[in-house]
């Protein structure tokens, strides 16, 4: 296990180094000189320009610029946004936490709905329920997320007036930001309207969660079903059945524990599509998250913000993938010896 841990940790460090290099190089990959990329409208005064050159150490060589950039990253000085002149680091934490809240609640729904669906359809393999779930997962995988989100808005917000369309919480509530995850902040806030605020926040998160969760839910149902059917053909399951255990006992005692490690692995692999989906859905629901911020900064050519988003999101993805790999290896020693898994 230690060998595996060190190998994965090594991989993590190298990957983060490459990602930071890519994020840093973005400034140089832009057409024109780096200073033009930071100031596409040439609207800055000479003093502001020299401040920027100072901040990014643009008058030095490539590698010393990189070291300077990393120093800035670690000291929490991520530059200021070109558009609204606010520090990027604070904005990044704010919006990334909003994204995380949305992504985690979607993943939660997916685990709550998708995994049981997969288990039941594998248990009754070949029944009408199984066929129904297979059809549903195929349909769910083929629906364009943005279209699905708009249809949800059309039905639940505009048609039935059940749920609000956009934002995170009603405008009336003023919640002090401590953890930047709204639901926790509300729980911490000592307010007479706490309950109402919580209800408002939950109503706001429902539609985007529903919109995003279609992808991980169907994926998890499909994967769970396929893996359990694969496992049920293994010899140890046959042996357990021959021993006289009921199908139900076999499922709980033998099949599901063996499914756990590949489940963890698949959850890790789902992070990437989950974040992609979240970014699109945020844009539709005006959810103040990293995806929406990224698209706005792209339109406004705000390079430092794009760099920050790219670095944060991709490092998050690689960290989740390494953690899930470690968890999977911890629960299933066979996977530790795989050359690259």
């Amino acid at each position: 296990m230690w060998r595996y841990f060190i190998r994965k940790f090594n991989l993590l460090i190298i990957t983060i180094f490459l990602l930071s290099l890519l994020s840093f190089s973005l400034l140089h990959l832009m057409p024109g000189a780096p200073i033009d990329a930071l100031d596409p409208d040439s609207s800055l005064s000479l003093a502001e320009k020299s401040a920027l050159i100072q901040h990014y150490a643009l008058d030095q060589g490539y590698w010393s610029q990189y070291i300077h950039y990393m120093g800035n990253i670690f000291s929490g000085d991520w530059g200021t946004s070109r558009i609204d002149q606010i520090p990027i680091f604070a904005q990044m934490i704010n919006s990334f936490m909003a994204t995380l809240q949305l992504a985690i609640s979607a993943m939660f729904v997916a685990m709550l709905v998708g995994v049981p669906l997969g288990i039941i359809s594998a248990y009754y393999h070949g029944s009408w329920f199984d066929r129904g779930v297979t059809t549903l997962t195929l349909i769910g995988q083929s629906v364009p997320v943005f279209w699905w989100a708009l249809m949800l808005i059309l039905i639940f917000a505009l048609g039935l007036h059940w749920l609000p369309i956009s934002g995170r919480i009603g405008l009336l509530y003023d919640i002090p930001e401590v953890t930047h995850i709204l639901l926790i902040d509300i729980a911490l806030a000592d307010d007479e309207y706490q309950r109402a605020a919580l209800w408002s926040a939950i109503r706001h998160i429902m539609l985007p969660t529903l919109a995003i969760s279609i992808i991980p839910t169907t994926a998890l149902a499909q994967i769970t079903r396929a893996s359990l059917i694969d496992i049920s053909e293994k010899n140890y399951i046959q042996a357990a059945r021959a021993k006289g255990l009921s199908r139900y006992q076999v499922l709980w005692r033998h099949a599901l524990p063996n499914y756990f490690s590949s489940f963890i692995r698949h959850v890790g692999a789902l992070t990437n599509p989950l974040l992609t989906t979240t970014m699109v859905v945020e844009y539709i629901f005006s959810w103040p998250g990293a995806g929406r911020w990224l698209i706005h900064s792209l339109v406004a050519q705000d390079v430092p913000a794009i760099q920050a988003c790219m670095l944060t999101i991709s490092i998050f993805v690689i960290c989740v993938s390494v953690i899930t790999d470690l968890l999977a290896a911890w629960s299933d020693p066979q996977q530790r010896s795989m050359p690259h898994g």
Binding site: N272, I313, V317
Partner: peptide
């Protein structure tokens, strides 16, 4: 791994 860590949309 580096490229795969970046979501396709990003």
């Amino acid at each position: 791994d580096t490229v795969l860590a970046i979501p396709s949309l990003l």
